[in-house]
């Protein structure tokens, strides 16, 4: 176990392609719902406890050795909107390219071969964590952090938000990231005995709706 590997995996500079995605923040900013650090924090809190929780549980289950193809189907069932399924798979494919170079692992190669268009990103993240010698709770933390890091970085660019204030938003969310990853890892640990239906399925209606609205924009700064 190397906690330093968790820092490498969750670093914003890890070449995962995540910088092109705002996690719905671009649409929320355009609608005027996110306009300062306080509203950004509310956005991130909702995102973290819905799609963030689901991602963290999928990542933890993958890191714990659950069948990634079953997890990929469970991710589809929890992602009703095609725009978000496309994004999750594209991000999964980009992350896969990076981690195959960083932590080459037969499990990752098998998944890449089975899902050439990309598996859902949290599952690749979980397998990457496993390949790096990290635990399922570590993988859940990386996914939970990932769920809020993208919107915060995007808000700095889109709103011209002071990076100090933006990072303070992330710092205020750390307790929630801990709580979400703990719950996610707990649910993931039940998968071997009870199947993937025990994974959380928390959803956020507006993230689903605005993802499709956003993907129809003719011009946008972020891919999602």
């Amino acid at each position: 176990m190397s906690p330093a590997a968790l820092l490498v995996l969750s670093d914003g500079r890890f070449p995962s392609g995540g910088h092109a995605h705002s996690g719905g923040a671009e649409a929320a900013i355009a609608a005027g719902h996110v306009h300062d650090a306080a509203t950004l924090e509310r956005f991130c809190l909702g995102r973290l406890h819905t799609v963030g929780l689901v991602s963290a549980a999928l990542a933890a289950a993958a890191a714990g050795g659950c069948d990634p193809l079953l997890l990929d189907a469970a991710a589809d069932a929890r992602t009703p909107v095609p725009a978000l399924r496309r994004v999750a798979r594209r991000m999964g494919r980009q992350l896969m390219r990076a981690v195959l170079a960083v932590w080459p692992d037969p499990g990752l190669r098998e998944l890449a071969a089975a899902r050439p268009g990309g598996a859902h990103q949290p599952i690749v993240l979980g397998l990457a964590a496993r390949a790096a010698g990290l635990s399922p709770p570590d993988a859940a933390q990386a996914a939970g952090y990932d769920a809020v890091c993208g919107p915060v970085t995007a808000a700095v660019r889109l709103l011209g938000l002071d990076p100090f204030h933006a990072t303070a938003v992330l710092a205020r969310l750390t307790d929630d990231i801990e709580e979400v990853s703990r719950q996610a890892a707990g649910d993931a640990a039940r998968v071997p005995a009870e199947g993937v239906d025990v994974l959380p399925a928390a959803s956020a209606p507006l993230l689903d709706i605005t993802a499709e609205q956003h993907s129809a924009w003719p011009v946008r700064l972020f891919a999602s």
């Binding site: 991130c44 973290l48 929890r78 959803s203």
Partner: peptide, 19 residues
């Protein structure tokens, strides 16, 4: 399809701009 929503007191961020 598997969807779970929680709204109201004690549900973090339910009324916020993501949900």
């Amino acid at each position: 399809l598997d969807q779970h929503t929680v709204y109201g007191p004690g549900a973090p961020g339910w009324d916020g701009p993501a949900v």
